[in-house]
């Protein structure tokens, strides 16, 4: 796999589904996304949605995606991007604990 190629978006992410969604859920999500990204107004997003739906509606292709979609050469940073990296909110408690010290 080419580590430098643009990552292909996960079809479940594109349709806003969790893995394991059934045919009905996939179709409903597709129709919802179509309303959000109609082809005339958002052609790029529509194409992504369409590709995602084409993949997931075919049970065999869906199963192949489930089995073989992970990339062992994926950049390690992609494992932590967006997760646990931001400055976390801790509530007022820890701040006040410091303020109470003289």
């Amino acid at each position: 796999m080419n580590q430098n190629a643009l990552p292909i978006p996960d079809p479940y992410d594109v349709l806003g589904l969790v893995p394991g969604a059934d045919d009905e859920q996939i179709r409903a999500a597709y129709l919802a996304k179509l309303k959000q990204f109609p082809p005339d107004r958002s052609p790029a997003e529509f194409e992504q949605v369409r590709d995602a739906y084409d993949l997931l509606r075919d049970r065999r292709r869906r199963a192949q995606h489930t089995l073989f979609s992970v990339n062992p050469e994926a950049p390690l940073e992609s494992l932590v991007d967006g997760k646990d990296n931001d400055r976390r909110f801790a509530g007022p408690g820890p701040w006040l604990a410091v303020l109470k010290e003289r």
């Binding site: 950049p75 390690l76 940073e77 932590v80 646990d84 909110f89 801790a90 820890p94 701040w95 410091v98």
Partner: peptide
């Protein structure tokens, strides 16, 4: 108390990203 606050709220992401880049 200060260490706890820093531990909870500090930006550790930058250090982690740098470490992962070195590993790559």
């Amino acid at each position: 108390a200060e260490e706890k606050l820093v531990g909870l709220t500090a930006d550790h992401g930058a250090a982690l990203r740098a470490a992962l880049t070195s590993l790559e």
